[in-house]
């Protein structure tokens, strides 16, 4: 029964991947490549590439990609359902506990210490994206010669509009993308 297998595999991925995207990758690989041979190693690399190029969490992307290949759209749906079900249950329970006990002084004190940790985690993810944007993903070669000057300009202009003018962030992101497309298409015409 392929649907049940897909569901159970992605249920495990959803239940045991702590710490977000990159932590989930080895778990996904083990389930879909090593254990079940649903896709090849090369296809898994393609999947990671596509995940980086499209919105959405890698686990959900993997569920759709593998599910579609193995059992069409119903396969994609059961795999995705398996992948998000553990989150739905656990996070809802934690949210209930938070709503009930958040006024307790001990929990307040604990959460107060968690807030700066969360900001640090977001900063860490942001710095990785920033460096990958400025240096083209090549993290080893931080030299001034391979800086993507256009990326630095987009970043600086975007930051100005976000901080000083409070422009909608999605508009900012979209304009950066559209500008880079325009520049890429026009460049051959100018030189």
């Amino acid at each position: 029964m392929i649907y049940l297998q897909l569901f159970l595999s992605f249920l495990q991925i959803g239940a045991f991947s702590f710490g977000g995207g990159y932590a989930a990758m080895p778990l996904i690989e083990e389930q879909v490549v090593t254990l079940h041979n649903w896709i090849s190693s090369a296809e898994f690399v393609d999947l990671v590439t596509i995940s980086q190029m499209t919105p959405g969490p890698i686990a959900v992307n993997a569920a759709t990609f593998v599910g579609t290949r193995i059992a069409g759209l119903p396969g994609a749906l059961v795999a995705t359902l398996g992948c998000v079900l553990p989150s739905c249950i656990l996070v809802t329970v934690l949210a209930m506990l938070y709503a009930r006990y958040r006024t307790l002084s001990l929990l307040q004190g604990t959460l107060q210490a968690l807030r700066p940790a969360v900001v640090a985690m977001i900063a860490s993810a942001g710095l990785s994206i920033l460096l990958s944007s400025f240096f083209g993903g090549d993290m080893v070669l931080f030299t001034m010669t391979n800086v993507d000057v256009r990326a630095v300009i987009y970043f600086a202009v975007s930051l100005y509009f976000l901080q000083r003018r409070h422009v909608n962030p999605i508009l900012v992101m979209s304009l950066c993308g559209v500008t880079e497309v325009a520049v890429t298409l026009l460049q051959p015409l100018l030189t």
Binding site: A123, R150, S158, C176, G177, V181
Partner: peptide
């Protein structure tokens, strides 16, 4: 190109 540009915007948002 779209993704390259958007990545710089994402970095600015974060």
């Amino acid at each position: 190109a779209l993704l390259r540009g958007m990545q710089a915007g994402v970095a600015a948002v974060i």
